[in-house]
Every structure is written in C-alpha cells, then in structure tokens.
C-alpha cells in the first residue's frame, strides 16, 4: 500500500483522440486526488516508466467552495480536492466531465452553465450601487430556505449526472433552475418572478427534467434540487394557467405620459 495506482483519461486538445495513461504515485497521509495530480507534476513519469507531459486539470480553492476541480472520480462527478485517497477504491480512475467540451486532459469548458444563468436572469435587478439604505427584510426561515441554493458553485456535478443533459437536448440542467428559484425567493428578485418562470418554462427548461434525481445525489453542497425542481414545476404550471387565463396585462391609460 505504499503506492497508489491512478488511471487518467487524457486528451491533448478538444479535437484530439483521448487515451488512458496510468501512474503510480507514492502514498502519503491525508492525500486527496489533487495531491496525486501535484505529485505527477513533480515527477511526470507514467506507470511504464516513460517520461510524459504533466496532467492538466482545473483547480483553485481546494476547499470545495470554488467548484473548479470537478471531475469524474471512480465514476462519480465530484471535486477532486474533497476526494480523499483513503476513501477511494484503487485503481483510482479519473475522467474529465463528459457533458462539457474537453479543453485538455481533465479540464473542461463549463461556460454553458454561466450562459444558462443569463437565460434565467440570475440577478437581483437593483437600481444602482449608490447608497439606497438597507435591503428588504427577510424572515430567517425564508433566508434559510434560500441560502443552500446560494451556495451553488456552478461545478456541474448535477449536469454531469443528469441523464437528460446531453448532446441531444438543450436542457439547462438543475443548477440554473435552482438559481431561478433563489432569485424568486428574494423580495426584490420576486418583482421579476414571472419573467424568470417563463424562462424556466422555456426551451431546454424545466420540462426536460425526467425525475431521475441523480442531481441531488451528487450535489456536493447538498442542495435539495429535487424539491426545488418540483416546486418550480408547480410555479410554472400556475404561471402557465394564469398567463393564459388572464391574458397579457393591459397597459393602463393613466400610465401614458400626460401632455
């Protein structure tokens, strides 16, 4: 047990063919997957004893709050920093996320997740950053409901595990839907609630969810994605009915500028 065997799926560029490479890394106490990759950087020699190129991967905070080092470790998407070697079965198999284009080796391009946040209008529409006093009061219970969603670090685990996020669909995935709910929970954000619900009901939106519920199982932040999606289901249904029953709001005559 003095050495760890690691199998890494590598790819030199977005259009290159992928290949597997094995490494043997000396075992130390308290190791995580990041420290394995760091060891490989310091000694880029594969298990066959051949000199190779250091593995490229994404990482930053190493505390599981930035979301950067997400990869598929022994079949499950998770953060490499929080994957302790002592808890992992060997050989440790590392693959890049499969639902996003590979940049190089274990590094992928998750820009689509940020684009999805634009789709759902993921922000509070404040008037400006000048001094306007405190924000609206929020009941602690309501805040406690919203806070877990606010800890979403856009890591992509939920999208990776979701069977309905793939190249055949445009599904925006659980993360973006949950963010819509976050902003709808905030008193100011709720002023644009309808627009966000329409976006969530839009193309690639919430209806593409198939209730496999893998998202919640793999979410490193334990965000109750299943309940959030179910609640957004209800909200979009109500929104759909009222929009149809009431019709579009008529512009009141007195809204017109006078003179």
């Amino acid at each position: 047990m003095s050495e760890i065997l690691v199998k890494i799926k590598r790819q030199d560029g977005p259009k290159s063919k992928s290949y597997w490479e094995e490494f043997k890394v000396p075992l130390k106490t308290n190791m995580n997957v990041i420290s394995i990759l760091m060891e490989i950087q310091k000694n880029p020699v594969n298990a066959k004893g051949q000199q190779t190129v250091p593995v490229v991967w994404d990482c930053n905070c190493l505390e599981e709050v930035c979301g950067a080092c997400t990869m598929v470790i022994n079949g499950v998407p998770r953060q490499a920093c929080a994957a302790l070697v002592k808890d992992l079965k060997q050989p440790i198999v590392l693959r890049p996320l499969t639902k996003f284009p590979v940049v190089r080796d274990l590094m992928v391009d998750r820009n689509v997740m940020f684009e999805n946040l634009k789709k759902i209008q993921g922000w509070i529409p404040i008037d400006g950053t000048y001094d306007l006093g405190p924000g609206p009061r929020i009941a602690p219970a309501r805040r406690d409901e919203a806070y877990p969603i606010a800890t979403c670090m856009t890591c992509g685990c939920c999208m990776e595990a979701c069977p309905n996020v793939n190249s055949r669909t445009t599904y925006i995935g659980p993360a973006a839907i949950a963010q819509a709910k976050l902003f709808n929970t905030h008193p100011t954000g709720a002023m644009n609630k309808e627009e966000r619900l329409d976006a969530v009901a839009g193309d690639g939106g919430i209806v593409d969810c198939g209730n496999a519920q893998n998202c919640e199982r793999v979410c490193p932040k334990l965000i109750p994605l299943v309940s959030i999606i179910a609640e957004m289901n209800r909200e979009t249904v109500f929104r759909g009915f009222t929009r149809w029953l009431k019709g579009k709001p008529q512009k009141a005559a007195f809204d017109e500028p006078i003179g």
């Binding site: 499950v76 595990a161 069977p163 309905n164 209730n211 496999a212 893998n214 199982r217």
Partner: peptide
Amino acid sequence: VTYVTKTSIFQYYYFRNWMFY
C-alpha cells in the same frame, strides 16, 4: 423523450435513477 435520454444505471446506482431507467 426516451431517445433524448442517456442513462447510466451502472454508473449511478441510485434507486430513482433505476426507476427512471
């Protein structure tokens, strides 16, 4: 709907995932 799904039951041994499949 079935066509646009890519299931992975042997990767995710979760009850709901199996039900989904």
